[in-house]
Design a protein around this nucleic acid. Structure first.
Length: 642
RNA sequence: GCACUCGUAGCUCAAUUGGAUAGAGCAUCUGACUACGGAUCAGAAGGUUAGGGGUUCGACUCCCUUCGAGUGCACCA
């Protein structure tokens, strides 16, 4: 609708002798209860016109109507100028733009963008939280590609570290040589099983250590600094308990607070005490061996990671996501130290007496942040600085997007700020696509309480539900077994993906495992059904896409449909700009809904005449095309029949 | 304690980024052509946008404040 904005700018200049920016023209879709398709808000112009909003609107309306042949009529209600654009214009949009093969196919914009997503740990299988991450990352990559970017999808695999050693050690101790082949388990699940086994053993071994602390008050197994921390916590617990004893039983809120405080301190002690268990000490030793390149440990590491990768590959395939480039932390965890040197030389970082390196971000409203330990070893952020540099060296991308949960907001704020202060090329193009956690009705998913929703299980359940629902309708009896299986996958995944993607990424998402994902209403299958139905109609008709039927007037639903279809390219732009698949999801739903309304109101195959029929077929074909394109941006397939 | 995020119909989500009478789906109730596919469509009911104050011609949106929920504040990753 740029031509309207342009004309409005001209109108203000002609009528009120004032130059305004195109961005200053507030333009929006006309609300359904009023006549017209495009509305200009005229309140902002009253200061130039020095007339009331109605009169200003009328004057601009008159001007536009004379100036633009596309404007058939207008009406003014309060400060809103509603423009009715001619049917001729909409019909020509359909035939000249929407039905064209290159409709909404963006020209390459010459910019490169990297999208990093998934980034799993190789010690346990993927869960629902990972699913959201993967779907978001994949979809954002698709959307950016559709907007003309060259996209590189990357996966930074967390394949090393103490947590990986935990499952390795547990397998060594309790595994009896079990393999995916011998157990029939998917590799990632098998490794996850030993991660759980480790945790169980750790809890057993923790009991005597805690007894030492709480009953015998013997802290001799701990190092000096650990001792000090435990003593501090013990002292706090003592004080809080005293206060609790004096508190009136009636003030329940205060008691709850105090109990929480005690639990918090006890957790701190537990964390420290864990390190004194034999199994944790062994794990630490294993990690040291790994870092030293010990042959036996490396072999075990390679073998078990290999199992996990095979498992992940299967999950990714089911999910329909993929990557152009894998980075492994085992290759990147030592990076970043040269950047420390660089930062020190530039005066961005400073050194403390114990040789540790820091950055002072207090002028940016943040704290001092450690970037290198006193013993010269890296911390998390050191490594991330190095990896950012590595990625840039590899691809020289203009932008880099990290799809990571919002619990790491602070980390990325700091990381990006550091890179900017270092004056790194590309630092301004960094963006943390921070998404909300997936919660259950009971709150967070907790592996210890067994409430984690496993990715593979969930996908399998979705397919089963799709199967039940479809069979109940008895519409696929003619399908081959193979086609049925494929269809159930398409529908089940469509329901799941749409359910997760229709919500604004920033917002937390509630998932109730006891309530199956819907297949009716505002859902993926609703949209898939609409597509299949259109295809069914098209297959029964002799649709001629080449000729242009002589149609000059539109029914309201027909016009609504074209207006929506016409909006698709700018919707993709908006989604790309805000990195939000939800924008696409809501648009496609609106489109499907409008098509269904049209379908019910207007007969296609029994249209009044051949021109109308061909016109409605063109509308139908275009709707199917845009539904299919939009859903593809969400990573959702649409079936021909269902 | 400090910082950040969030709070919209019973439930799950929208609201063109400050615009008109806050819209959808689910659930509830009422209807639909002997069908171009009923996983659909039409309608009813459902709201003090957590509460209070402010800025503005105009506030779900911006500012202040109270309440409630979540997350982060390691020489862990």
């Amino acid at each position: 609708m740029d031509f309207i904005i342009e004309a409005a700018v001209k109108a203000v200049k002609q009528l009120y002798q004032t130059d305004i920016e195109p961005a200053a023209v507030s333009i929006q879709e006309t609300r359904k209860e009023f006549e017209g398709q495009v509305t200009i808000v005229t309140f902002p112009f009253t200061k130039f016109s020095r007339k009331g909003p109605e009169q200003t609107g009328t004057e601009i309306g008159e001007y536009l109507k004379n100036e633009l042949k596309e404007i058939a009529s207008f009406n003014v209600i309060k400060g809103f100028l509603n423009l009715s654009i001619s049917d001729e214009y909409w019909i020509s949009q359909l035939y000249n733009n929407i039905t064209a093969d290159d409709f909404a196919v963006a020209k390459p914009n010459g910019e490169k963008v990297m999208v990093e997503y998934s980034s799993p740990n190789t010690n346990k299988p993927l869960h629902l939280g990972h699913i959201r991450n993967n779907l978001l990352g994949y979809s954002v990559a698709e959307i950016l590609a559709a907007d003309g970017y060259e996209v590189i999808k990357t996966n930074l695999v967390n394949d090393r570290g103490i947590h990986i050693c935990k499952s390795m050690l547990a397998w060594q101790k309790f595994g009896n040589g079990e393999t995916p082949e011998s157990s029939g388990m998917k590799g990632d699940h098998l490794v996850g099983k030993y991660y759980v086994a480790f945790d169980k053993e750790l809890r057993e071994q923790l009991k005597p250590v805690l007894t030492e602390v709480y009953e015998k008050h013997d802290l001799s197994v701990f190092k000096e600094n650990q001792k000090a921390k435990i003593e501090e916590s013990l002292a706090t617990i003592g004080k809080v308990k005293e206060k609790r004893a004096q508190t009136d039983e009636a003030s329940q809120k205060l008691i709850a607070e105090l109990d929480e405080k005690i639990a918090g301190e006890e957790d701190k002690i537990k964390e420290i005490a864990k390190n004194a268990t034999p199994i944790m000490i062994e794990t630490q030793q294993m990690l040291q061996k790994w870092e030293a390149g010990d042959e036996e440990v490396m072999n075990l590491w390679r073998t078990m990671n290999g199992w996990v990768y095979a498992g992940f590959a299967e999950t990714y395939k089911q999910l329909g996501v993929d990557f152009d480039k894998y980075y492994y932390e085992s290759n990147t965890y030592l990076l970043g130290k040269d950047i420390i040197e660089e930062g020190l030389a530039k005066g961005v970082f400073f050194k403390k007496a114990d040789n540790s390196v820091w950055i002072d971000l207090s002028s940016d409203g943040l704290d001092e942040k450690l970037v290198l330990r006193g013993d010269g070893t890296s911390v998390y952020i050191t490594q991330d600085m190095g990896t950012a540099q590595l990625k840039y060296n590899d691809y020289h991308m203009d932008r880099s997007i990290y799809v990571v949960g919002n619990e790491q907001d602070y980390h990325f704020k700091v990381l990006f700020l550091i890179l900017q202060k270092l004056g790194k090329t590309g630092a301004d193009g960094l963006f943390h696509l921070s998404y909300g956690m997936v919660d259950l009705p009971s709150g967070k998913m907790k592996s210890r309480e067994g409430t984690v929703v496993d990715a593979d299980d969930l996908m399998a359940e979705m397919e089963t539900t799709a199967k039940e629902q479809t069979e109940a309708m008895g519409k696929v009896d003619a399908f081959s077994e193979e086609d049925k299986v494929a269809l159930y996958h398409t529908i089940g995944m469509g329901a799941l993906k749409y359910f997760l993607l229709k919500v604004d990424p920033k917002k937390r998402l509630l998932f109730d495992p006891n309530e199956s994902v819907d297949f009716q209403g505002h859902t993926g299958p609703f949209i898939q059904y609409t597509h299949a139905r259109i295809k069914s109609v098209l297959s029964r008709a002799d649709y001629n896409a080449e000729t242009k039927p002589a149609v000059t007037e539109l029914a309201d639903v027909e016009r609504d449909l074209i207006v929506l279809l016409d909006k698709y390219p700018e919707t993709v732009k908006e989604a790309a700009k805000s990195y939000s698949p939800a924008v696409i999801a809501n648009y496609v739903y609106e489109l499907a809904k409008t098509y269904n309304k049209f379908y019910h109101e207007k007969s296609i195959l029994q249209a009044e005449d051949e021109d109308s029929k061909q016109f409605r077929l063109a509308l139908s074909a275009s709707s199917a095309k845009v539904i299919s394109k939009g859903m593809k941006l969400l990573g959702i397939e649409v079936p021909e029949r269902m």
